[in-house]
Amino acid sequence: MENAIEIKNLVVAYGPKRALDGLSLSVEKGKIFGFLGPNGAGKSTAIKTLLGLVPFYSGDVRVHGLSPADPRARARIGFLPEEATYYRFLTPLETLKFYGEIFSIPKAELKTRIEKLLTLVGLFDVRNKPIRTFSKGMAQKLSLAQALVNDPQTLILDEPASGLDPLARADLRRILHDLRNQGKTIFFSSHELSEAELVCDSIAILEAGRLVLSGSLKEVLGDHRDKNLERFFIETVEAARK
């Protein structure tokens, strides 16, 4: 099976502090991969590196075989940030049109795709309302729609369930499973472990910039299948800190 993401011995330092310290992992194509870790573990730094937002690092990072600095790699990615306030003077329709134009998607194709996406995330009826009137949950739905506007091969989601109510979370899970069934790879960062347990095929646990363990949920839990992921996660992180 080919890998959508390959990271080998990645080191990212901010001054004397190493945010990532020799991180190596790979994500198989067509899987939902949970990237877990406590606050400050380095999850966001790893995601930013995958997105080409960190200009200086050592090690090797490949997204679909290309460096993240290469715009062709970024053209295959959709990114949903943990929190973003989109342009408040635009409507959802204009926002998606803007991001579509950044990808140079032809006009007619973009129009059809935007309508589908707005329907998918449940914002079609408010497509012409200014974003400044949106709740946090609605903004998060728009965020998901912008991440899908280029029909990406790989989705990178940073805390995607943040700000969503239980119904919207269930919708998100359904959308992620549908996307996985379409062959898309989903790289999912979270510290909400119940959410990760419900959607992920495989996981990696990060602590202090280092990979503690990774593998399929079955492999990782191994003999600990009687425990839920949250209990297992706490024990694993505490053991890594000792």
């Binding site: 930013k48 997105l51 080409g52 937002l53 715009p71 062709r72 970024r74 053209a75 990615i77 990114f79 940030p81 929190e83 973003a84 306030t85 989109y86 342009y87 991001y99 950044i102 990808f103 912008q146 280029n150 990178i156």
Partner: peptide, 10 residues
């Protein structure tokens, strides 16, 4: 935080 969203695109 839209800079990260925008510059993660091509």
């Amino acid at each position: 935080r839209t800079a990260a969203v925008l510059l993660s695109k091509p």
